[in-house]
Write a protein that binds this DNA or RNA. Sequence first.
DNA 1: CTTTCTGCAAAAGGTTTGCAGTTAG
DNA 2: CTAACTGCAAACCTTTTGCAGAAAG
Lengths: 144, 144
Amino acid sequence: MGTMVQIQEALEVLRSKGYKVTEPRRRVLKALAEAEQPVSPYEIQEMLGRKGEYLNHVTIYRVLDLLCDLNLAHKVLLRGGFVKCTLGKGEGCHRFVVCRECGTLKEYADKALCAEESEMARDLGFRTEQHFSEFSGVCSKCQG
Amino acid sequence: MGTMVQIQEALEVLRSKGYKVTEPRRRVLKALAEAEQPVSPYEIQEMLGRKGEYLNHVTIYRVLDLLCDLNLAHKVLLRGGFVKCTLGKGEGCHRFVVCRECGTLKEYADKALCAEESEMARDLGFRTEQHFSEFSGVCSKCQG
DNA sequence: CTTTCTGCAAAAGGTTTGCAGTTAG
DNA sequence: CTAACTGCAAACCTTTTGCAGAAAG
């Protein structure tokens, strides 16, 4: 499955930036990859607990901080949880579409939209650096 | 000044929806109108305290909840604070541009952008209902 | 070996709840 | 008057900090 590959890639990023590859970091990455929805630090702790892989919550907070710094994970503001990043580099700002019913999330990027938003902001006198965009709606499965 | 008018309008919305116009609600609205940046519940409490207008923090939380429900205020997720809504109705989703330096914020809405985003999401199988957008950047004053 | 990382204990902060008393309409 | 609102106390949950021991490279 692609999940293992994704985790390996993430670990490689850690290594290449001089960070150590540790068991807690592996576990948090795996938990994020397995989660279908954005998950909070304590939810991650629960997920791991069920598999007998206890981690201190402080450790989880710190791992998540690092992963977000490296763009290997994102905090979803609308839901207050974290997700594993599924995009590569250099494709514009990362966005989310979140299903209000089941919590399913899709990540995407669109350079044209980014450009348009930046222009919008320029009209207001701003030089934008980052666009946080999250759309809330209903996914195909949940549409009746 | 326009501030008073804006508050009067907000109070009118409260009245028209059957909510009571109380001193705490007046005070929170006034504080939001005076704030130049997004402010947290406790910051609002401080602002009011300096004017000798004490409010319990629980009351402030509840007033803010109500104002957000009525779209008279917004929670700015990037900053974790609240702002008074400055837009009228039916102009599309409300967005923010926030200055990373001074915290200055501008609110705007753009129907075309909304439409474009909805199309984007439709391609991903989503029927969107709400677009939540915050741009982080540098405002004209803070640009060197 | 040495630097980085983790766990623990504890504190600090933010948010919520239930209830009794007050107030707007 | 009565329903709606506020204040208080307390609980609860989330996040952060400092430090001592463990582990990766």
